[in-house]
Amino acid sequence: MVVLPVRFERSPRLHAMLSEVPYSVGTRVVVQGKRGPEVATVRGEATDPDPRGRYGAVLREASPEDRAQWDDLHRRGEDIKWLLRARARERALKVKLVAVEFTLDESLVTVSYSADERIELGGLIGELREHTRARVNFAAIGPREQAQMIGTLGACGRENCSSNHLQDFAPVSIRMARDQQLPLNPEKLSGPCGRLLCCLQFEHTQYLELLADLPRKNAKVCHEGSGACGKVTKLHPLAGTVDVQTDQGPLYGVPASELRRDGPAAPARAPAPDPEA
């Protein structure tokens, strides 16, 4: 037995599955997951299983019949999603229906939705039962999961990270933006989901290491070359320099190695950011 990382269609997250056959990358397989049998794609090389690991199972390579049935179920799910959206509008339900997904054996249909408040879904369940005998599961998802499933473009012009490669949603805080000297503009710091950009966490550790060698903003320092003393007004972590406002005028791009503190040292920087509220 080997372990294969597989990916489902609506998420970049990799799921470890036990398999008797080391299928090659790109092979579509039928797997037994938490919801039931589904079609997924192998996204990595086979590895040895961990005795302590918990895995799903690869049942077989997806046959042409499996793929055709899966595509048909996907089309049915899309049709039902738009039908339920129309019925929700008729009932004035403040809900956004994101996806309707069947298992391969059509024993379960999962309706992913988002809503700002608790809503009554009984009417929609009745509508759904007119089109399938599958067991119905309504799953509430958050803004980030919604962006992940739908897929959008980020401010960088590329596909948003949550639907491209992110494996988990790590906490992101406004402190990360401050440490990276970014303007605290909510429109520029928010992703398509309306939450703080996930990419703020990618380089935060490196910024903390760079900031450790710089004086803090508003710290009193003196320039060893000119002897001028003043207050730090701006940090440039990547360049390792700071801007200083002195009585003789501003100094721009001063290397931290040419500065000495004028007075007691500033308190140590917090080692970890506060989680987003």
Rank of each mutant, 00 (worst) to 15 (best):
A86K: 14
Q180W: 01
G227F: 11
S190D: 03
A86C: 07
G225F: 09
R54I: 11
G225P: 07
L182T: 03
C198V: 04
G154D: 08
A170N: 10
S257E: 14
E117R: 15
V98P: 00
A155L: 13
G77Q: 04
R260C: 10
V39N: 03
I150M: 08
D71N: 11
T110S: 13
Y207P: 04
K217T: 08
R135P: 05
L208V: 06
R60C: 11
L104T: 06
I119V: 15
L184W: 05
N185V: 05
S114M: 13
R133K: 15
H15N: 07
G240I: 01
Q181A: 08
A88C: 12
V254F: 04
R52Q: 12
A92H: 14
G227I: 02
G151E: 03
F102M: 05
V221W: 07
L235P: 07
T233K: 09
L121T: 02
H223W: 08
P64C: 10
Q180I: 02
H165Y: 15
A177M: 05
A272G: 05
V25P: 04
G249Y: 04
E117D: 14
L14S: 07
C193T: 02
E120T: 14
S19Y: 10
G36P: 04
H165T: 12
A46Q: 05
Q181E: 15
P5K: 05
R7F: 02
P51Q: 10
L208E: 14
C198Y: 00
G230T: 03
H223A: 12
L259C: 08
D66T: 01
P271W: 03
R133E: 14
G26K: 06
Y252N: 11
K188I: 10
A266T: 10
R75L: 11
T41W: 07
V242I: 15
L182Y: 03
T132N: 04
R135C: 12
R67A: 06
M17G: 01
M17Y: 04
D213I: 05
R195V: 00
V58N: 02
P186D: 11
A140L: 15
L59A: 10
T47E: 15
L124M: 09
P275D: 03
A92E: 15
I125D: 04
R10P: 06
A68Y: 00
